[in-house]
């Protein structure tokens, strides 16, 4: 589904990703872990097409298409979704209107008819229950004055509405208490299927108690230095990221 080959990328001339290789197949859940500054969020941003980032080398294929050639909106149309670490507040734009526009734009891209008001409301209701989001929240301006948990739930709600093939969750657990993590995770788990995949980007292992990954990758200094089954996450939690740093001291010097 997603195939990343020797991906190099950076921002404003600074190299951050230095040769990422990753293969994700339908139905899989991958977790990318790593210390601060290792390039986790950069990877998520590059995949979603954030314009400030520059890809200098490498290839990314998504469902048979050259992902890096696609605009952010086309990537969404193709079925890629990024849950933001810091969702943007937009005063004056109603959440519902935004989501309706988004759903119909994606449908248009996929050659489907726009949803009529009734079907849209029905779908909203269904997905709202999934992430415990209240109607009043959706009538407010997009993320404006939302609590941290409400913003993250809104991200997962949007994900549920757009039904992506690949969902990238960028530090979705950061700033959330355990109840909020549970709600968000339930939402994500409910959307898992044999056709969809999830890429979790996280600093901590605790989210992985709720969304259990098939593979864990350790990102360090712009490269995946270790991959393994879910148990790798426990090892990281126990030993901290220092053991990675001590295993790869040369890389630090290269920096």
């Amino acid at each position: 589904m997603l195939s990343i080959e020797n991906l190099h990328a950076g921002i404003e001339g600074k190299k951050i990703l230095k040769g990422i290789n990753l293969e994700i197949k339908p139905g899989e859940v991958h977790a990318i872990m790593g210390p601060n500054g290792s390039g986790k969020s950069t990877l998520a941003s590059v995949l979603a097409g954030r314009p400030e980032y520059e890809v200098t080398q490498g290839k990314v294929e998504f469902l048979g298409k050259d992902l890096l050639e696609l605009s952010p909106e086309k990537r969404a149309g193709e079925g890629l979704f990024l849950a933001f670490q810091y969702p943007i507040e937009i005063a004056g734009l109603s959440t519902t209107h935004f989501i309706k526009t988004s759903v119909n734009e994606v449908r248009k891209y996929r050659g489907q008819q726009p949803l009529d008001a009734v079907s849209f409301l029905k779908m909203m209701k269904e997905k709202m229950a999934l992430v415990n989001i209240e109607k009043t929240l959706l009538s407010r301006s997009l993320n404006e004055g939302f609590s941290g948990g409400e913003k993250k739930r809104n991200e997962i709600f949007q994900m549920a509405m757009l039904e992506p093939r690949l969902a990238i969750l960028d530090e979705t657990d950061s700033g959330l208490d355990i109840d909020a993590i549970r709600i968000v995770s339930n939402g994500v788990n409910a959307l898992r299927s044999k056709d969809n995949a999830v890429l979790l980007v996280t600093h901590y292992q605790r989210l992985l108690d709720y969304i259990v990954p098939d593979f864990v990758h350790v990102l360090y200094n712009g490269q995946i230095v270790k991959s393994g089954p879910k148990e790798l996450a426990y090892e990281l939690e126990e030993r901290g990221y220092d053991f990675i740093k001590s295993e790869f001291p040369a890389m630090e010097e290269l920096n």
Partner: peptide, 20 residues
Amino acid sequence: FYLRSRGIREEKARALLVHA
């Protein structure tokens, strides 16, 4: 970027932001 990442075309995204 936020709006575009949700599948909304650039022109449409601009219109939504201006209106907001």
